[in-house]
Every structure is written in C-alpha cells, then in structure tokens.
C-alpha cells in the first residue's frame, strides 16, 4: 500500500510564554484505503495533528509528505492548491454557510477548483446522494437536523474526490444515535475506497474503526486491539 500521508518526527511548538509543545516527535503513516481513528483526551494535540495532516499549518520540526510531496517545499499558494485537490475537511461545528442550500454548500467545496457552476452543482448532487441526502438537496442548513448538517459537511469534503478526508470531532455535537450513523457512513465511504482519518475523544465510537492511534501529551501510539 502506498502512503497517502507520511509524518516523521513532527513537532509543533506554539511560542509562549510559556511555549507549548503540542506535538512531540510524531511518526505516523496513513495508507490509501485506511480508516483511522485518532483518540485521546482533549488538549492532547489531536486537532493540531489534524491541521498538520491537512496542510493547514506547518510543523516546527520534522517532515510531512502528502501524496509523496514534502509540504515544507511548497509555498502558501501551492499548499492551498494541494488542499483544494487532495484534502477534504470535516469540522465539529459543520461550518456550513447559512442562507444557501445544501447543494450550494457542497458545491462550495469545488469553488477554488475553477470549475463552472453547472459542473459544481452536478458533482454536489452526486456527493449529497452518496451521503444519503438525495432528498434534501434544496434545504437550507437551518432546515436540517444536526446529523443531516454533518452529512452535508461530509459531502462537501468528498465532492472534490480528495486523497484523504480529515474529520475533526465530527460527532462532537451529535447525540450517540446520530454519531453511530455518522460512523456507519464513514465505514461505508471507506469501503468504497475513501481514505479517512477521524479525530474523536469518544472511545466507544472509535471502537468501530479498524485502526486506532492514541495521542497523549503530543505523542502518538498505535492501539492494538
């Protein structure tokens, strides 16, 4: 299996005072087709790790390779290009744009790809159908339930056919039943070949995932089932 994401010796220090070492020499490799849960208590550096993985931030030390490219060599513009083509983000608070439809929100995920409006809309509808919202295309975010909103956000992450989907506490604002459904959705998408990394502090939820790594004080360890 080729590694989609390869982190070696990655550290992140937030300048103080006092300086905070959020990541402390993390080595991890995500292969194409992986479905990984990153677990750990809050403050363990999970979000920071996810931002590094998604090229939203640069490490203080160590190297990160996304699709075989060392991101340290890329300019801010190139990083943006990388994010637009290869990475899909899902956030805990969904971060949908109020006032525009589910389809428009998902199509927004293709806005910086230079595609025409009709093509963006066509792909958005396909993505919404993949997450099971084919019947909610023209609904506004405030007409959707929490679980449905998160599905829209997941569709937005999927719409550009990214090499990897990174989800930061995607069920953090959802009840346990809805969380189960979202976990189920991730498993289904993974079965279709999508590489997914999910951050969660919900150990119960993580138990559904084939691979789990645990973060503690900025260090990472595989959890052996």
């Amino acid at each position: 299996m080729t590694a989609v994401l390869e982190l070696s010796g990655v550290s992140k220090v937030y300048p103080g005072p006092p300086p905070v070492r959020a990541l402390d020499g993390v080595d991890v490799s995500i292969a194409a087709g992986d479905l990984v849960a990153i677990i750990g208590p809050s403050g363990a550096g999970k979000s920071t790790l996810l931002h590094m993985m998604g090229a939203l931030d640069r490490p203080t030390d160590g190297t990160i390779e996304i699709d075989g490219v060392d991101i340290a060599t890329l300019s801010d513009r190139r990083l943006s290009g990388l994010r637009s083509h290869r990475i899909g983000f899902v956030f805990q608070d969904f971060f949908l744009i109020e006032g525009i439809t589910a389809t428009a929100n998902v199509a927004e995920g293709l806005l910086y790809r230079g595609l025409g409006r009709t093509e963006r809309k066509r792909r958005a509808i396909v993505a919404l159908e993949r997450v099971g919202l084919g019947a909610r295309l023209d609904h506004l975010p405030n007409q959707l339930s929490g679980g449905e909103r998160q599905r829209v956000a997941i569709a937005r992450a999927l719409v550009g056919d990214p090499a990897i989907v990174l989800a930061d506490e995607p069920t953090g604002n959802l009840d346990s039943h809805t969380s189960e459904e979202i976990a189920e959705l991730f498993r289904g998408l993974n079965a279709d070949g999508t590489t997914i990394v999910v951050i969660t502090h919900d150990v119960e939820l993580a138990s559904h995932f084939p691979r789990r790594v645990e973060m503690r004080d900025g260090r990472l360890a595989e959890v052996v089932a």
Partner: peptide
Amino acid sequence: VRRAIGAT
C-alpha cells in the same frame, strides 16, 4: 473553511 477547501 475557505482556506481549508483551497482558497489562497
């Protein structure tokens, strides 16, 4: 979000 989905 815009930066995350690829805005420069």
